[in-house]
Design a protein around this nucleic acid. Structure first.
Length: 821
DNA sequence: CCTGTTTGCACG
DNA sequence: GTGCAAACAGGG
């Protein structure tokens, strides 16, 4: 018998698929060392070697494959519980494909920020480097680098900042070879972690040892009564507890354990409320949608006029879903709104609500995320990124104010949360409810072609009438000067009447600041931003001219940079100037302002809303922030200073935006017992966007607008992808843009699949050709055929003949762009 | 022909 | 995103 040499038999070994958090289009496979095997789960993060570096990756699947190729091992598992379920993986993959964005970075965008680890190169000075510094065998740049490193070890970024210029990698490499410095890889990041508190318990079998201090005795007594107590709780009774328990642990009297806790993002507790009796229409809406729960994918557009009580419909529908054991996801446009809707959901559902929005600290966000991931919350409510809330399954997704542009993310992964809501609902066989008083053209088109069904709310709750809207033709009063140019006699008169009646007024102007067009009275040059192609806005409160794109500012005392004159004429009106005019015209009134300048501080929105509710404000001046879904029962008059600002934007959606904004802001009036009135000042009183807004009549608006969209080949009849280029050097950016443009023309050749199917517009310089010293070009690609459009751009960017990427020109892809500026 | 620098590629 | 190798330009 020939002896058989026994090898350890391992024909198959566990292999995991990892998406790394880097801009790479592929996923990578790794093997799992034995000691980590038990920890492997889809949705956890892992630390992996990647090239010569160590980076964070996401486990998106595992398999067991024959031991053939040589794979690297994962180095560590970073989470004790998954951050998302495996059901999310196809959703993430869909997003990566649709938005042409690397899967790992899609997941990074979805997850709470601040968790990931990466290694960075840290340079430390060595003795020979020290010696070289004093010799004269060093170049000037080497000398500055060495000098910088004498202070402390630095990474590349710090070094660049300290030295004040780019340091070539080759130089560092050389210095390392000479032994002047060492480069080590340090793992950094992961600032956001679980918060723990120290829990103190009695140690087992602790005998009465007789002689102990009264404080120690007090602690023991407390623990005997209450079982375990946290250190902060103990300190309330015994102030020195924090240090005492340490000694007592050494003495074997108590045990101390770290317990993970959730940070509390909620300020005051909210009193529970009871569901009110629904109006017939509301009840009908709930009754029509409830049977759709748990019955597969469906999208319903809930079209309800302003003040018709959509939120109550959401609440009761969510109740039906929760009672059926379904998870609920609620999206609202932005923080100012969240406070209200969030409060109502928390009042109704209490502990089971998780909130996810940018108003939370990173740690709070992580904790809310974990509560959802671990199935401890049944409802998640938040802004656009909440669409990624890691429920294993979702039964109902509600998108409030679905038309709102805030659902579209700019920069990075440019997703639209409203669209993703429908996609996620489809993936999870859920009901998606899109609600709005002014549905987007896109969504109403989907109703028209039978993709979505619709439920309507045509009347306000308590039967308040819709406000009466009166237009004032601004072209009739062109000769007026000063305040009267923008506060017409009729508006002034109505405000006075409202004040006399003790009611509140809302004045809307979609432009913040004092003067948006400061111009030199001597030479006629407007004051421009030095980094952007845009004029500066004077902010009186901040006493400075500011750029609304890059934040550049110069003092309000500046003279004209062109001629040195100190006579600056302040043309163009913003909310600040309107506020000042209100104070002048109505000295007895209490005037407040709500825009991005006044609402930055945490809690300022809540305070303002409270003041408004308690009638501490008579006149509120604001930007579109005031148009968004707030319920101000005391407001009976709304004044729109100039309705045309959005109408004249160079964007095919300008009419749609104007209609929505005006209908929404008008809807703020007359929500209480008193009927509302709206004074709408405009240069285009007969434009259909404005006439339709008067009656909140989105169907009439849609029927007009859809004709234009069809005739001009705009969405929803075509889909668009914007390719944007930006770079510091205007010439190089232009060259690359034109190269990309001719690559498009090559793809469009008559024998190819894209001929006459895909249309390329541009490349052209962007309407705002320079922002923050970045020169910008763009190209719009559109097609009636979504799949073909995506194939086209895929070939353009990633195909075999794709242009090589350049480091000095950034190219980004924006699928379904919103802003074409 | 050698060397310092830029560019394209691949990362499991 | 970055490190590395190959291509490249520039000077001896």
């Amino acid at each position: 018998m020939t002896p058989v040499k026994q090898k350890p038999i391992r024909p198959h070994r566990p292999i995991v698929s990892v998406a790394v958090a880097l801009p790479v289009m592929d996923c990578y496979s790794y093997t799992v060392p034995d000691h980590l095997l038990a920890l492997i789960r889809t949705g956890k993060r892992v630390l992996v070697p990647f090239g010569s570096r160590t980076v964070t990756g996401y486990l998106i699947g595992s398999s067991s494959e024959p031991d053939s190729t040589t794979l690297k091992h994962i180095l560590d598992v970073l989470d004790d519980a998954p951050l998302f379920s495996s059901a999310m993986v196809p959703f993430f993959q869909w997003i990566a494909t649709y938005y042409m964005y690397p899967l790992g970075q899609v997941i990074s965008t979805a997850l709470p920020a601040g968790l990931n680890l990466t290694d960075i190169a840290v340079m430390t000075l060595c003795p020979p480097g020290m010696a070289a510094l004093t010799s004269d065998a060093v170049s000037p740049l080497e000398k500055t680098v060495l000098t910088a490193l004498t202070k402390r070890p630095m990474d590349f970024r710090q070094l660049k900042k300290d030295v004040g210029q780019r340091v070539p990698w080759a130089l560092i490499h050389q210095m390392r070879q000479r032994g002047w410095l060492v480069v080590e890889r340090q793992i950094k990041g992961g600032q956001v972690r679980r918060k723990t508190i120290r829990m103190v318990r009695l140690a087992e079998g602790v005998a009465e040892s007789g002689k102990i201090s009264p404080q120690r005795q007090a602690i023991l007594d407390l623990l005997r009564q209450q079982g375990g107590l946290s250190v902060p709780d103990l300190s309330k009774r015994v102030p020195t507890a924090a240090s005492l328990v340490r000694a007592m642990q050494k003495a074997g009297m108590v045990r101390i354990e770290d317990h993970p806790v959730y940070r509390d993002p909620f300020g005051d507790p909210i009193d529970p409320d009871r569901p009110p009796v629904l109006t017939d229409e509301q009840a009908e809406a709930v009754n029509r949608m409830t049977p759709l729960l748990g019955k597969g994918f469906r999208t319903v557009l809930l079209a309800g006029v302003t003040g018709s009580g959509k939120t109550e419909v959401y609440l009761q529908l969510a109740r039906q879903a929760v009672d059926r054991g379904l998870h609920v996801l609620v999206l609202v446009p932005e923080i100012a709104l969240i406070s209200q809707t969030e409060r109502r959901f928390r009042a109704r559902f209490g502990e089971t609500v998780a909130v996810l929005h940018s108003g939370l600290s990173r740690g709070e966000r992580y904790d809310q995320w974990l509560r959802v991931a671990r199935g401890e919350a049944g409802i998640a409510i938040g802004a656009r990124s909440c669409i990624f809330a890691p429920f294993e399954t979702v039964g109902l997704i509600i998108v409030d104010e679905e038309h709102d542009a805030a659902y579209k993310q700019d920069g990075g992964l440019s997703y639209n949360a409203r669209d993703l809501a429908v996609v996620r609902a489809r993936h999870q066989n859920a009901l998606a409810v899109l609600g709005s008083a002014t549905p987007s053209v896109q969504s109403w088109h989907n109703v028209a072609i039978g993709k979505y069904s619709t439920v309507g709310l045509t009347r306000r709750v308590n039967r308040q009438p819709l406000p009466v809207i009166q237009t004032v033709d601004l072209s009739q009063i062109r000769d007026e000067r000063g305040i009267r140019r923008y506060i017409t006699p009729l508006l002034q008169q109505e405000i006075q009447k409202t004040l006399d009646d003790g009611h509140q007024t809302l004045i809307f102007l979609n432009r913040r600041g004092f003067s948006v067009f400061p111009i030199c009275a001597h030479c006629g040059q407007p004051l421009r931003c030095k980094n952007c192609d845009i004029s500066l806005t004077l902010h009186k409160q901040a006493n400075a001219y500011r750029c609304h794109y890059c934040g550049f500012s110069r003092p309000a005392t500046s003279t004209c940079p062109a001629c040195g004159s100190d006579k600056i004429k302040l043309l163009g009106t913003g909310t600040e100037k309107i506020q000042e005019a209100m104070v002048q015209l109505f000295p007895q009134a209490r005037v407040a302002r709500m825009d991005r300048d006044t609402m930055t501080r945490k809690g300022s929105v809540v305070k303002l809303l409270k003041d408004l509710k308690n009638r501490n404000i008579d006149i509120l001046v604001g930007t579109q922030m005031v148009a968004k879904g707030h319920d101000f029962p005391g407001i009976t008059l709304v004044g729109v200073v100039c309705a045309d600002l959005t109408l004249n934007f160079p964007d095919f959606r300008a009419g749609e935006r104007t209609f929505q904004l005006l209908a929404q802001v008008a809807g703020r009036a007359g929500r209480g017992k008193q009927p509302g009135k709206v004074i709408l000042q405009t240069f285009n009183p007969d434009h259909f966007s404005i006439t339709a807004a008067k009656h909140q009549d989105f169907v009439t608006f849609f029927n007009q607008e859809i004709g234009f969209r069809q005739a001009l080949g705009y969405p929803p009849f075509t889909r668009m992808i914007a390719v944007r280029l930006s770079g510091r050097d205007p010439r190089q950016t232009g060259i690359h843009a034109r190269a990309l443009g001719s690559a498009c023309q090559d793809l469009l050749h008559p024998e190819g699949p894209f001929h006459r199917q895909v249309q390329v517009m541009g490349p052209i310089e962007a309407p705002l050709a320079r922002i923050a010293n970045q020169h910008r070009w763009q190209m719009l690609i559109k097609s009636p055929d979504t799949a073909r459009l995506h194939r086209f751009v895929n070939q353009l960017m990633l195909g075999p003949n794709a242009l090589p990427t350049r480091r000095d020109v950034r190219v980004t892809i924006d699928v379904d762009p919103f802003s074409l500026m």
